[in-house]
């Protein structure tokens, strides 16, 4: 889901940085002392999840954990994703530094969307498993659509590539849905305060 350096236009890069800066600033305001360690923990999990490969036929992809991040951190997902993506770019060469703003916005907004849409239902208990699965799928597919939109806004010729990206993420979305179900069930039993 990381967009590489040198693909997007200057205006899309600038819009990404603006959106991310606003999100990070608001997220930091919403992150109090009690949530800082939790944010670091989730940010580390996201940082390391990129190393877990999932084979899909001849190709492979990696986990993103977007939905669990959003459901646990809420608005705090912006600074958590920004730091993790910055380190992934520097240490693993995923994405890049100029495109960091766009990548941060795409992943954080996708995670935040499922927090807003499904957070209450997953914490509620009834049909939590179903909502967790839908949240996992929605987060990845929203991210893929935003990647497609960023590519499309740069150049009309990128629409074909965007279509491929969205289709390629369908299996990943299903896997993330299952992972989200397990993680949310485990958190509700072992550390319910994480979802408060």
């Amino acid at each position: 889901m990381h967009i590489s350096e040198g693909i997007l236009s200057g205006s899309v890069l600038a819009a990404g940085w603006l959106g991310s800066a606003a999100g990070i600033s608001y997220g930091l305001k919403k992150t109090d002392t009690a949530k800082i360690v939790r944010t670091a923990l989730i940010s580390s999990a996201f940082f390391l999840a990129s190393l877990v490969n999932v084979r899909i036929g001849p190709s492979s992809t990696h986990l993103t954990l977007l939905a669990p991040m959003g459901l646990v951190l809420g608005f705090g997902v912006f600074p958590a994703v920004f730091v993790a993506l910055l380190l992934q770019a520097l240490l693993f060469h995923f994405g890049g530094l100029l495109v960091l703003g766009v990548n941060t916005f795409i992943m954080s907004a996708s995670a935040l969307l499922v927090y807003v849409l499904f957070g209450k239902f997953i914490r509620g208990g009834r049909y939590a498993v179903v909502f967790s699965f839908v949240a996992g799928v929605t987060a990845v597919m929203t991210g893929a659509c935003l990647v497609g939109a960023a590519l499309g806004m740069t150049d009309g010729n990128f629409f074909t590539a965007a279509k491929i990206i969205i289709i390629a993420h369908i299996p990943v979305a299903l896997i993330e849905g299952v992972v989200t179900v397990f993680l949310m069930s485990w958190l509700k039993k072992s550390a319910p305060e994480f979802l408060s």
Binding site: T33, I36, A40, F47, A84, L87, Q88, L91
Partner: peptide
């Protein structure tokens, strides 16, 4: 090696968190 870079990344994340934690406190 990969594990060194992974550990370095996690360490940096927690160090940043500690800086914010102390400042907030």
């Amino acid at each position: 090696p990969l594990y060194v870079r992974a550990l370095l990344g996690v360490s940096i994340i927690f160090n940043i968190a500690m800086i914010f934690y102390r400042r907030e406190k």
